[in-house]
Computed example of a mutant assay.
Amino acid sequence: MNWLSNYVRPRIRALVGQSKPEVPENLWHQCASCERMVFHRDLEANQQVCPRCDHHLRVGPDYRFRSLLDEGWTRIEMPKAPADPLKFRDLKRYGDRLKEAQARTKVQDALEAASGAIDGMPTVLAVMNFEFMAGSMGAALGEGFVTAARRAVAEKAAFIVVTSSGGARMQEGAISLMQMARTTIAVEEVKEAGLPYIVILTDPTTGGVTASFAMVGDVHIAEPGAVIGFAGARVIEQTIREKLPQGFQRAEYLRDHGMVDMVVHRFEMRATLARLLGLLLRPVPVVEETAVIDPPAEAEAVEETVPAEKAPHDEPQQ
């Protein structure tokens, strides 16, 4: 029997193990682009952008609210919608999938909204959460979108939406497709009130979201490298049987072809929004009209004494 290995070493490990602090499991994150491990503090300091390849990692609504809105913003309560209107079931019940997503993300559905300001200008910000069932659009998301849009109209605020979605939620069938029309009508209410509607397209924005409220904004901003489209690139290639161009459906490609107004880095997003809202919300200064000075009376008298030229019919006949 080895005394050191069987007695001393276990006692030392027991003593060290009791005083060893618990180490969190999420200290390191893997970049989806370069696949390198990045320390969590480096990511936080770099606004969730990979410091090596500049890839923009996905972030949730809370991060967007803190980074874009001024201090003092308030969360908008989202209305409740039917949880499982079609009683859908595939490998699992749709209701069970919803409960699992709600327990994991601590939110009710894939859209959250807040009321606040950007650089002092009133703003309602709605953000989609990709972590909740891939940001899919269902009845709850549509109801929340309409609520946020009408809140912007009531507060005479700009309406900004950050999109990140895989499209319509198949478990709700035609009900999810109806949200395409509902959200588009809500956008029209904002525009009829004379308020700006700005869309920030993040990775990914696809499916029914792209075909509805994501592409009807007054200004479309995209984050670098974001995938934006309706159907997937592989589906399109198999349908048309052609090789797609390099960078197809990426933010830079869409900007070069007129589908996106600008591609803005996350570091500059807040400043860009503040500049846009300053142009779209702040009233145009009124220039005072200069008073017309009447000519002096002496000048009028001089004009009256000047003989008028003879008309052609007054000239003597030859």
Rank of each mutant, 00 (worst) to 15 (best):
3 W>Q: 07
4 L>G: 04
4 L>F: 15
10 P>L: 00
12 I>W: 12
13 R>Y: 14
14 A>F: 11
19 S>R: 14
20 K>Q: 12
21 P>Q: 08
24 P>E: 06
24 P>D: 04
32 A>W: 12
33 S>A: 10
34 C>R: 09
36 R>T: 03
41 R>V: 07
42 D>H: 09
50 C>V: 02
51 P>Q: 11
55 H>W: 01
60 G>N: 10
60 G>F: 10
60 G>C: 03
64 R>L: 03
65 F>Q: 00
67 S>W: 11
67 S>L: 07
68 L>I: 08
71 E>R: 09
75 R>W: 05
77 E>Q: 07
80 K>Q: 09
83 A>V: 12
85 P>I: 02
87 K>D: 06
94 Y>H: 05
95 G>E: 08
95 G>R: 05
102 Q>I: 03
106 K>C: 03
109 D>N: 08
111 L>C: 00
114 A>Y: 10
115 S>I: 06
119 D>I: 02
121 M>L: 06
124 V>K: 05
124 V>H: 07
126 A>N: 01
126 A>V: 02
129 N>E: 13
129 N>V: 01
130 F>A: 03
130 F>Y: 12
131 E>I: 01
134 A>K: 12
134 A>V: 07
134 A>Y: 14
134 A>S: 13
136 S>I: 07
138 G>K: 11
140 A>I: 01
144 G>A: 00
144 G>M: 01
144 G>W: 02
150 R>T: 05
150 R>N: 13
151 R>F: 06
152 A>N: 00
156 K>R: 12
157 A>C: 02
160 I>F: 06
166 G>R: 13
169 R>D: 14
170 M>H: 09
171 Q>T: 07
173 G>I: 04
174 A>V: 10
174 A>S: 09
177 L>C: 05
178 M>T: 13
178 M>V: 10
179 Q>C: 10
181 A>H: 14
182 R>S: 08
187 V>Y: 13
188 E>Q: 13
188 E>G: 10
189 E>C: 05
194 G>V: 04
200 I>G: 09
201 L>R: 13
204 P>M: 03
205 T>Q: 12
206 T>S: 09
207 G>M: 08
207 G>E: 06
208 G>E: 02
210 T>D: 10
210 T>P: 04
210 T>N: 14
215 M>N: 07
215 M>P: 01
217 G>C: 02
219 V>Q: 13
224 P>H: 05
224 P>W: 11
226 A>L: 08
226 A>E: 00
228 I>G: 03
228 I>W: 03
230 F>N: 02
231 A>Q: 12
232 G>W: 08
235 V>H: 15
235 V>N: 13
240 I>V: 11
243 K>A: 04
244 L>I: 05
246 Q>C: 04
247 G>H: 10
247 G>P: 05
251 A>F: 03
255 R>L: 07
256 D>N: 06
257 H>W: 06
258 G>K: 01
259 M>V: 04
260 V>E: 02
263 V>D: 09
264 V>G: 08
265 H>Q: 13
266 R>K: 07
266 R>T: 07
266 R>L: 11
266 R>W: 11
270 R>D: 11
271 A>S: 15
272 T>W: 08
275 R>L: 15
284 V>G: 12
285 P>L: 01
286 V>I: 15
289 E>H: 15
289 E>W: 14
290 T>W: 15
291 A>V: 09
298 E>M: 05
300 E>H: 10
301 A>P: 01
302 V>T: 09
307 P>M: 05
311 A>H: 14
312 P>H: 14
313 H>F: 15
313 H>E: 15
315 E>H: 15
317 Q>F: 15
317 Q>W: 15
